[in-house]
């Protein structure tokens, strides 16, 4: 079949802004976007710059935007993006500076990975002449994170990073982002590492685990099933278990649960009161006023739930608490 690719191009040496260029190539049914791009490069336009190497979703080179979403060009079938021959939009991944055409600067990505101290710090010298004894399940769990190929698709998709940069934040500052945090859990969860407390503590600050808004984008875009958001939630759970509770994020989560336990539903005002300190609450007043004027303020007192619903919710809580592992 014939495929039309509209490729976002940029040549930093030309002095010109980015522009779109349309190419038409023949592609087979099971061929991927990378196959098409390579054909373009080899047969039509040798100046098209992109990174690629393994062609099998292992090296992590070829993450880019396709029809507006980041993914691996070597794992994304043309036919899936263009079932009826619609043009496919291809561009560099977001949230990272563009160097040329589809090539982005991964520098900020790696600088964030380096911030989680990405190497094992054993608590004690390793056993002599043998391996650490570790249950296979723990290793299988860690391989779920080691499966990350550092392609950056999750970072390109992350809505928090997008918002930060929209407000003028630099790509190597602010939220650590999904890949670096998933990497952090790879060490926090490694029974051989002796510093998981320090690691968790370091992630409590701004830009750490509490900055994620659970938008699911990274989970959806990750080509290797790493599910970074789930890893971030796991880090939060471990941080709370380790006693790191002095954070608005923790208070917010606690208030969320309390509200539902008490009222059987979410009382957003209660949530706000409990999530932040008094001073912060005071600072939020202008926002609250505007919300009130716009009719967006949640009711001061939650509505009553019909019938026994409240009791039902309580019972659910009781059942959950009984099942909770010690």
């Amino acid at each position: 079949m014939k495929a039309t690719l509209i490729v976002r191009r940029y040549d930093p040496e030309s002095g010109k802004p980015p522009y779109d260029q349309t190419y038409t190539v023949a592609v087979g049914e099971s061929e991927v976007v990378l196959d098409a791009l390579i054909k373009i490069r080899e047969e039509q336009d040798g100046s098209l710059a992109l990174r690629c190497s393994c062609r099998s979703a292992i090296c992590g080179s070829c993450a880019m935007n396709m029809n507006g979403h980041p993914g691996l060009a070597c794992k994304t079938k043309v036919a899936a993006l263009s079932p009826h021959g619609e043009p496919v939009q291809v561009g560099p991944g977001g949230n990272l500076p563009v160097i040329k055409d589809l090539v982005v600067d991964m520098g900020p990505f790696w600088s964030k990975v380096r911030q989680v101290t990405p190497w094992l710090r054993p608590g004690a010298p390793p056993p002599a002449n043998e391996e650490y004894r570790v249950p296979n399940e723990r290793m299988l769990d860690l391989s779920g994170m080691m499966a990350c190929i550092m392609c950056g698709a999750c970072v390109m998709a992350c809505t928090v990073l997008e918002a930060e940069q929209g407000q003028g934040g630099k790509p190597d500052e602010g939220f650590l982002g999904p890949a670096a945090l998933a990497k952090a859990l790879r060490f926090v969860g490694d029974p051989r590492d002796g510093t998981s407390r320090e690691r968790l503590e370091a992630l409590m600050g701004g830009g750490g685990i509490w900055d994620c808004t659970h938008c699911f984008e990274c989970v959806q875009r990750c080509p290797k099933g790493v599910a970074p958001m789930d890893r971030i939630l796991e880090l939060r759970r471990r941080a709370v278990d380790a006693g790191f509770t002095d954070h608005n994020g923790v208070r917010h989560a606690q208030a969320f649960v309390d509200s539902i336990r008490k009222h059987g539903q979410l009382d957003e005002n209660y949530l706000a009161r409990k999530s932040v300190t008094f001073g912060e609450l005071f600072q939020m007043m202008p926002v609250a006023l505007r919300m009130l004027l716009a009719g967006k303020m949640p009711p001061m007192f939650p509505h009553n739930l019909p019938g026994d619903s409240r009791e039902d919710v309580k019972r659910i809580f009781e059942a959950m608490e009984e099942e909770k592992p010690a």
């Binding site: 094992l120 391996e131 004894r133 570790v134 249950p135 490694d190």
Partner: peptide, 13 residues
Amino acid sequence: HMGVVFNRDKDGR
């Protein structure tokens, strides 16, 4: 010892 997550047997080896 460097941290490779090799698969284990039932004894954790």
